[in-house]
Amino acid sequence: MAIRASNVTLTLGSSEAPVHILRGVDLDVPYGKSVALLGPSGSGKSSLMAVLAGLERASGGTVQVDGLDFTKLDEDGLARARRGRIGIVLQAFHLLPTMTALENVAVPMELAGIDDPFGRAAAELEAVGLGHRLTHYPSQLSGGEQQRVAIARAMAAHPKIIFADEPTGNLDGITGAAIADLLFERRAELGSTLLMITHDPALAARCDRVISMQDGLVVDA
């Protein structure tokens, strides 16, 4: 399994006023499969993704990602585990405004010690249709182009697992459809596992499996 979560809980706040975000989630995702995560706002979707991606620590249960037990790793260990293994695409593009498209994709790989980061970044930007925009800054790019850069950044290290949280949420319908096509095409080419949060039933239907969450629990898998 690429992802295996067992009885995962997440509780925030104080001991006097705890807020139970995840209430015992069980989830298995095989390698190479695409899974859509649906549910109303506040159901725990983004929190679950953050735990599975190693961005948030579970309060209880076990989380295994690509064979690593994330519940036993400290913050530095989680950061190392993500490098080259996990790619993340968010609704907000989170590009650094002072870096070009090429630098936004290359620098994270350079910091992770991945070989030839700028060459790989240029190739990935070419793959997402932005080979002619390498030296442009985010302010010079449209929303769709910025999300293409974000996808290139997530894919450039050829991760085994891609997490996408509302990847088309900030885009108009036509641009969003093109970005969805690109995300699925690149995932298929790399053979990566995809876990995607979306409110779009049509987008969810393109995945191998659809999972629904409510009140911090998986209610339909």
Rank of each mutant, 00 (worst) to 15 (best):
M1N: 03
V107I: 12
A205P: 00
N7Q: 15
R209C: 00
D215I: 03
P117I: 11
T193N: 00
M155L: 15
G77L: 02
T198A: 09
L22K: 03
L182K: 07
L37D: 03
I197Q: 06
A188Q: 03
M49P: 10
A106Q: 06
T71V: 07
L90F: 15
R209Y: 00
P201G: 04
V65L: 12
H136N: 12
V63R: 07
P201V: 03
R153D: 12
I114E: 14
G131N: 08
A150G: 15
Q147L: 13
D200S: 14
S43L: 02
L194K: 02
R133Y: 05
A202Q: 14
S212I: 03
S14D: 11
S212E: 13
G173P: 01
L195P: 06
G113W: 05
R120G: 10
A123V: 08
T175P: 01
S41C: 03
A122I: 07
I88E: 12
G144C: 09
P18F: 01
H199K: 10
V65Q: 04
P97K: 07
R82T: 00
L182F: 03
A150T: 12
E56W: 07
G143I: 05
S139F: 14
D208M: 00
L183A: 08
I161Y: 07
A156M: 11
S43Q: 04
L141I: 08
R4P: 09
F93K: 12
L141H: 11
M196A: 07
R206Q: 00
K45I: 07
R186L: 03
M196P: 03
I197M: 04
L203K: 05
A164D: 14
T9W: 09
A79R: 06
L96M: 02
A50C: 10
T71P: 12
L102N: 07
L203T: 02
G84W: 03
D69N: 11
I114T: 12
A17T: 08
S34P: 00
D215E: 11
A164K: 13
V19I: 10
T135I: 09
A79Q: 08
M213K: 09
K45S: 06
A178E: 15
A202I: 05
T9D: 11
A178F: 08
L68H: 14
F70C: 05
D76T: 11
M213T: 10
I114W: 09
G84H: 02
G113Q: 09
I197P: 01
I211Y: 06
G39F: 01
E110C: 13
F70I: 03
V149H: 14
S14F: 04
V218C: 01
K33M: 05
R186W: 00
L68M: 14
A92T: 12
A180V: 10
A81Q: 02
I161N: 08
G42S: 04
L111C: 08
I162R: 13
A106T: 10
A92V: 07
I211K: 05
R120F: 06
A205G: 01
P159I: 07
D116N: 15
A92N: 15
D200C: 10
S46V: 00
L73A: 03
I88L: 13
E189I: 00
A157D: 15
Q91S: 09
R120P: 06
M1G: 02
A152V: 10
L55F: 10
L37C: 02
V19R: 11
R85S: 13
D74H: 01
A81N: 02
G119M: 13
T62Q: 14
G87V: 05
D172C: 00
A17W: 02
M1A: 05
V218D: 01
F163N: 14
I86E: 04
D115Q: 15
R4W: 06
A79T: 09
